[in-house]
Computed example of a mutant assay.
Amino acid sequence: MTDKVIENNQVTVMGEIVSGFSYSHEIFGEGFYMMDVKCKRLSESYDTIPIMVSERLLDVSADYTGELICINGQFRSYNRHEERKNRLVLSVFAREIEFVEEMEESSKTNQIFLDGYICKEPIYRKTPLGREIADLLLAVNRPYGKSDYIPCICWGRNARYANNFRVGERCAVWGRIQSREYMKKLDEENVEKRVAFEVSVSKLELIEDGEVS
């Protein structure tokens, strides 16, 4: 059962480590740390993705900044309480790590597959230039009764298709993790630059019979 649940959330990211380690938390004596990996897009821009790493996978006292790395894992979420409300915090939980010498031009440096349930009505809209966009929130099951809540963004035909999805329907999503900067208004005088993470969807489908086609 656990293997089946792990299969419903699969991430592979390849890129350059661009930060040191910062302590996150400890579970049953195992420490977890955060680092950032910069993944190249086809458009020559980059996504900087937060990675959660166990001290049992890497020497967290070392400095790997500038090293190239391939990570397999899961995209996970948790709610952090701040400013009198909860904020959804997302990161890639590393299960396997491999250092690489170089990135092949053909390498798919950022891939994700999710199999989950629509947990919020889709939000469909058009940009001023007429581009169609739909926002989805997917609940993806994890072992021991937990779930990760993953925001997804669809474009064009996919956005139109996703607009018809209903809460509770099961959905499979393929795409990549993207980072996006935005300005958060703190009060009348102060704004803060923040980074949001979401899945940019390249393909999606509803699952009717319990199997992904």
Rank of each mutant, 00 (worst) to 15 (best):
I71S: 00
L137W: 09
D47Y: 00
E121L: 05
N9E: 04
E44S: 09
E188S: 13
G156C: 04
V212P: 05
N164F: 05
R131E: 14
V13C: 08
V92M: 01
D36Q: 10
E7Q: 11
T48Y: 00
K193C: 09
V13D: 01
A172Q: 06
K108E: 15
I133E: 07
I71F: 02
D115T: 15
T109D: 07
M34L: 14
T48K: 00
L206P: 00
L137H: 11
A139T: 02
K193R: 14
C154Y: 05
R170F: 11
V5D: 09
R160K: 14
E105W: 08
D209T: 06
I97R: 13
P50M: 01
N163P: 06
D47T: 02
I112C: 02
R87A: 13
K184N: 08
T2A: 13
N8F: 08
M14V: 12
G116F: 03
D3N: 14
K4Y: 14
V167P: 08
N110K: 05
G20L: 00
E26K: 03
D209L: 06
D187E: 03
Y144G: 07
L204Q: 10
S106F: 12
R87M: 12
V167W: 06
I27G: 02
C154I: 03
R176E: 12
Q74Y: 07
E105S: 11
F93Q: 09
D135E: 11
M183D: 14
E104S: 13
D47E: 03
F75M: 04
N86A: 12
R157F: 09
G175R: 04
I49S: 03
A159M: 02
G210K: 05
Y161S: 07
M34A: 07
S202Y: 13
S19Y: 00
N158L: 09
V60I: 08
E101V: 05
G168N: 00
Q178F: 08
T65H: 01
A172L: 05
M1W: 10
E16F: 04
I71R: 01
Y117I: 14
R166E: 08
T65Q: 02
K126C: 14
V100W: 05
H25A: 01
L138I: 15
R87K: 15
K185H: 05
V89P: 10
S77L: 01
D36C: 13
E104Q: 10
A196I: 04
I49E: 01
K126H: 10
S22K: 07
K120S: 13
E198C: 09
V173A: 01
K146L: 07
N164I: 10
G29Q: 06
I123K: 15
G168I: 03
L138T: 14
G29C: 03
N72V: 14
C39R: 00
K120L: 09
V11E: 01
S202C: 09
I123G: 12
M183P: 12
N79K: 12
D148Q: 06
V199I: 06
E30L: 11
F165R: 00
R170S: 04
I123N: 13
F113P: 07
K4S: 15
E208P: 03
L129A: 15
N164L: 06
N110W: 03
K146C: 09
G116Q: 05
R157H: 13
K146W: 02
R56D: 10
E16I: 11
R166N: 08
E121V: 12
